[in-house]
């Protein structure tokens, strides 16, 4: 890389490395924040379309600057001091949530080469870090000294921990198919054909179960009962205000992006263009589209699916939610795992 060479000329090796770390960190944070704004805008617009409305359309052309205005507003808001709350945990919770979200976000392969850390246990890392968020949620619920947040956090904890299993099992299907946990390797293996096509029925099933489980993990859509407005006001972040609430909000939207990003990386080929074996001309033309466009296109497609589901289905009750996971989704995932093993072995 050019920047690397220049830095190494002027600074020592150690300092060059540190500067690069900082630069990449800043870049990731910038992308994180911008994506959050884009996602909030897209969500509001698409939600409007689903309800036969126009969505935000006053600030800027087509309301493009609406989420920027909202961001400025939330930055200027007062941080309300909660009486008799556990202040240390109360403040820590929002940082835990956003840190978990950023750690997962940073490990996504955004484009060809634009991949910050490439472990040999990449998926394992993604799963582990993304489930750290539940700690923040429980912390927030417990420390706020309020019934609403407490019940919301308990529900959320139960939901996240249960659905983590399905999500993990669905990803394992792809790990079995590819034989590796390294994300770059998984993406590279999809250069001939995306795993959703390569893996026959088990891969399609795994894609569906992953989308459902991932959707439940982001506390959105039909699974948003931890923050069911009608009964819990806002769930675990009821007592938060100002930028601390903003952190929760940001993390929620980015978790949606992360789930969609993982789904597109694992099943839809990540940044890999659409390749059909035998069609060389088609494959070559597809290669001209930049890999960033491919990654974000697929991810936004998955996000659109999530929003579509969100505005189609009614909210589940807590018992229905857990029934869905333990009685339906998990058995399907386990059977799917066996099916995939058979496909790979035979």
């Amino acid at each position: 890389m050019q920047i690397d060479k220049i830095l190494r000329i002027y600074l020592g090796d150690t300092w060059a490395l540190i500067t690069e770390f900082v630069l990449i960190g800043v870049a990731l944070l910038a992308v994180y924040a911008t994506l959050a704004l884009i996602l909030i805008y897209a969500e509001r617009k698409i939600c409007g379309f689903f309800q036969c409305r126009l969505g935000p359309n006053r600030v800027g052309k087509w309301g493009i600057l609406q989420s920027v205005a909202d961001m400025v507003k939330i930055l200027l808001k007062e941080l309300i001091h909660i009486n008799r709350a556990d202040h240390f945990l109360f403040r820590l919770a929002s940082f835990v949530i956003i840190a978990a979200s950023i750690c997962t976000f940073a490990a996504l392969p955004f484009a060809d080469g634009a991949h910050v850390i490439d472990f040999n246990i990449g998926i394992f890392y993604l799963m582990a870090v993304s489930s750290l968020g539940v700690v923040g949620i429980l912390m927030a619920g417990w420390s706020s000294n309020s019934k609403y947040t407490m019940i919301g956090a308990m529900r959320s904890g139960a939901q996240l921990i249960s659905y983590e299993i399905s999500a993990g099992l669905s990803l394992l299907v792809i790990v079995i198919l590819s034989g590796t946990m390294q994300i770059s390797e998984i993406v590279a293996q999809q250069s001939e054909m995306w795993f959703i096509f390569k893996g026959h029925i088990p891969a399609c099933l795994a894609f569906l179960t992953y989308l459902i489980a991932g959707h439940a993990e982001t506390n959105r859509g039909p699974f948003d009962l931890p923050e069911a407005e009608s009964e819990l006001t806002a769930g675990y972040h009821t007592e938060y205000s100002g930028i601390r609430f903003g952190f929760f909000y940001l993390a929620e939207y980015l978790n949606m992006f992360i789930i969609a990003g993982i789904a597109s990386t694992m099943f839809l080929g990540g940044w890999m263009p659409l390749h059909i074996p035998g069609w060389d001309l088609f494959n070559n033309t597809m290669d001209y589209i930049p890999s960033v466009v491919w990654f974000f296109g697929k991810t936004f497609f998955c996000i659109f699916l999530a929003l579509w589901v969100r505005w189609s289905f009614p909210r589940l009750r807590i018992d229905q939610l857990l029934n869905l996971e333990w009685k339906i989704l998990m058995p399907i995932c386990l059977i799917n795992l066996i099916l995939m093993t058979l496909v790979v072995v035979l």
Binding site: G48, F50, Q51, C52, R53, W308
Partner: peptide, 14 residues
């Protein structure tokens, strides 16, 4: 989901 999709592409009433 089919019904909601039809709703999305319908002309907006606003």
């Amino acid at each position: 989901m089919y019904i909601t999709f039809l709703n999305m592409i319908r002309p907006k009433v606003t």
